[in-house]
């Protein structure tokens, strides 16, 4: 049996600058934030990030790690617009490849199934064809002869996802309301890393999570990180809700270079264990 447990920093050591990295979760929900924080501590840069974006993409933009964003939206949910992402876009600091939410699902699904594209009507007539040069149309070979969008396979060098529970081999499940697209990110990637609130023995996993919530299989997972509080400050229900106070201070740090430097020094220039200790102490204060 392969025990795939590793630390956040060991995961990041397997990544390279210039990679295309998919990040699971949705908006400011169940994001693998401890892995993002580890990337922020590393010298990785020039990354292409594929995500249903939230503070994962915002933080990576603020830290200058992003070459290109591949996304359908970036939002903090309770703060609709992600201020760090906006700043990166408005200053022209990053390349932008827009997708529709459903189109992104199809691109990941195509990569999972090793086909070059999947057909859909999504995108026809819209400016996605002006702004995303990767998109092409395809003509149905059947009698209808319809013109459809060929959603291109979105192959990833690596995927990072955060689940509620995992076992040491890489099986993992979610306990919240929505699986999001974590299994598709994992399946679209050459290397996939799962962080989880708790890593439990395999014989405890299904009884804890329930059969239909076992989203991720070890067949597609290369590393497992136990990261209790690892999604903070995004939500990871039912383990914890979004930390709205913290999120507000994160958003406010986009106001100036000084504010960002202060936030970075307080919350990012420290180890994950120090981060977790510090935020627990602040929450208790």
């Amino acid at each position: 049996m392969t025990d795939k447990r590793m630390t956040e920093d060991e995961v990041v050591a397997e990544l390279r600058s210039g990679m295309t990295i998919g990040i699971g979760g949705w908006g400011s929900r169940r994001k693998p934030m401890s892995l993002i924080r580890a990337i922020l501590r590393s010298d990785l840069d020039d990354l292409t990030i594929v995500a249903y974006g939230g503070p994962d993409l915002g933080l990576l933009c603020a830290a200058g790690k992003v070459r290109k964003a591949v996304y359908a939206f970036v939002s903090l949910d309770t703060i609709p617009l992600e201020p760090h992402f906006r700043a990166a876009r408005q200053s022209g600091a990053i390349e932008d490849e827009p997708w529709d939410e459903g189109l992104l699902l199809l691109g990941l699904q195509a990569a999972n199934w090793r086909v070059p594209f999947l057909p859909t009507r999504v995108g026809l007539g819209s400016d996605l064809f002006r702004d995303n040069p990767r998109l092409r149309t395809v003509t149905s070979p059947y009698d209808d002869g319809e013109t459809l969008v060929a959603a291109p396979a979105l192959r990833l060098d690596a995927a990072l996802v955060h689940l509620n529970r995992a076992d040491p081999r890489g099986n993992a499940g979610y306990l919240g309301p929505d699986p999001y697209f974590d299994d598709l990110f994992v399946g679209a990637a050459d290397k996939a890393y799962v962080s989880a609130e708790y890593v439990v023995p395999t014989d405890d996993l299904e009884p804890t999570v329930g059969l239909t919530r076992l989203l991720i299989s070890r067949l597609q997972v290369d590393g497992v990180v136990e990261a209790t509080g690892g999604a903070h400050f995004t939500s990871c229900v039912p383990d914890y809700d979004r930390d709205e106070t913290f999120q507000k201070s994160y958003a406010a740090s986009a106001k100036s270079a000084e504010a960002w430097a202060e936030f970075k020094s307080a919350w990012l220039d420290l180890s994950e264990s120090d981060y977790q200790e510090k935020r627990a102490a602040e929450a208790a204060a």
């Binding site: 359908a72 609709p80 906006r86 876009r89 408005q90 827009p98």
Partner: peptide, 26 residues
């Protein structure tokens, strides 16, 4: 709902395309 101004370097970045292309064609 994506961006105000020139798309490549917008004056105001908004949410993104979200699901609007897929919704309206379907």
């Amino acid at each position: 709902i994506a961006a105000i101004g020139d798309y490549q370097q917008p004056r105001t970045q908004l949410l993104g395309y979200r699901g609007a292309p897929g919704n309206t064609i379907n």
